[in-house]
């Protein structure tokens, strides 16, 4: 616990509040209400919550697009409104707000220019990212023709262009097929291992459970639970055993033994396969067969 405190805070929010006002300046919605957040270097932090709970609003404040009504917010040690801090941030929005007349290649080049990248370094980076998000075949097609998932992939690629220290992702896996989803999750884990800090907003709980080291759950603009995933999931006095099915007599003997020890009879289930594991198995078989 002590060394966690010493870890560098990449995002630090204290009493962060955002009130949306109407035309006349009267408060309309309290989208974020006095939240405290600490996101530390190298962790994958999940921001969970139902629709309209203030996740996107929080991210937009971190990006300096919205200005907090009150409270403090520092990002990578700077004010989120400073332009220089943006060279170290990558952001993938919840929808793809892209110029649909540009091709995948052109749009990445455009954003790379905004980062001040040039020369062979830029070309290499763009090529690598297009490869990484699996759009090599579509790189000369216009974004306007892209499917939702393809546009999401471009959204991810542009977020990684500047090799950012802090990556913010709003619903990164929405619209992606399960394999792409898996790939994105693996990619994020790999990035975290390289020391990047990642903040994800989502209500895809299983995805978040897979990759997040810590989460905060937002409800109506307030944090109602926060902590590491293991902590939150652990129920200290229940255990789950997974084993090769033994013979019926052994099983009954073991169950009797356990019942005598704990006073309740343990529950026995077959571990079924998830649809995800079946899907991934089938599609990868087909893919490897065809290539």
């Amino acid at each position: 616990m002590n060394d966690e405190k010493n870890m560098e805070c990449v995002i630090e929010a204290r009493g962060l509040t955002k009130v949306f006002r109407d035309f006349w300046g009267r408060p309309k919605v309290r989208a974020v209400n006095g939240i405290n957040l600490d996101v530390r270097r190298g962790e994958i932090f999940g921001l969970l919550g139902p629709n309209g709970s203030g996740k996107s609003t929080t991210i937009k404040m971190i990006l300096g697009l919205l200005h907090p009504t009150s409270g403090q917010l520092s990002v990578l040690g700077e004010s989120p409104r400073s332009v220089s801090v943006k060279t170290r941030i990558g952001f993938m929005p919840e929808e793809s707000y892209l110029y649909k007349y540009l091709t995948a290649d052109e749009i990445l080049n455009f954003y790379a220019n905004l980062y001040g990248m040039s020369g062979p370094h830029k070309i290499e980076r763009v090529n690598a990212l297009i490869e990484q998000v699996g759009l090599s075949k579509a790189r000369d097609r216009r974004i306007g023709e892209f499917s939702k998932g393809m546009a999401r992939r471009i959204g991810l690629a542009q977020a990684l262009l500047n090799d950012p220290d802090l990556i913010l992702l709003d619903e990164p896996t929405s619209g992606l097929d399960p394999i792409a989803c898996r790939e994105v999750k693996d990619l994020l884990l790999a990035l975290a291992r390289q020391g990047k800090t990642i903040l994800i907003c989502s209500h895809h709980l299983s995805d978040m459970q897979d990759i997040c080291s810590r989460v905060a759950i937002l409800l109506q603009g307030e944090v109602c639970a926060t902590g590491s995933v293991q902590e939150l999931l652990a129920t200290p006095d229940t255990l789950k055993l997974t084993l090769q099915a033994p013979s019926q007599t052994t099983l009954t003997a073991v169950l009797d033994l356990l019942e005598r020890d704990t006073g309740t009879r343990p529950q026995v289930d077959h571990t079924g396969r998830t649809l995800e594991s079946v899907y991934i198995e089938k599609v990868s078989q087909k893919k490897s067969a065809s290539s």
Binding site: L65, K86, T87, E95, Y97, L98, Y99, L114, Y115, Q158
Partner: peptide
């Protein structure tokens, strides 16, 4: 309105 600028402004653009 359709938020394309919003992505541009998350880049280091004054």
């Amino acid at each position: 309105q359709d938020r394309r600028l919003y992505l541009v402004l998350t880049k280091p653009v004054h």
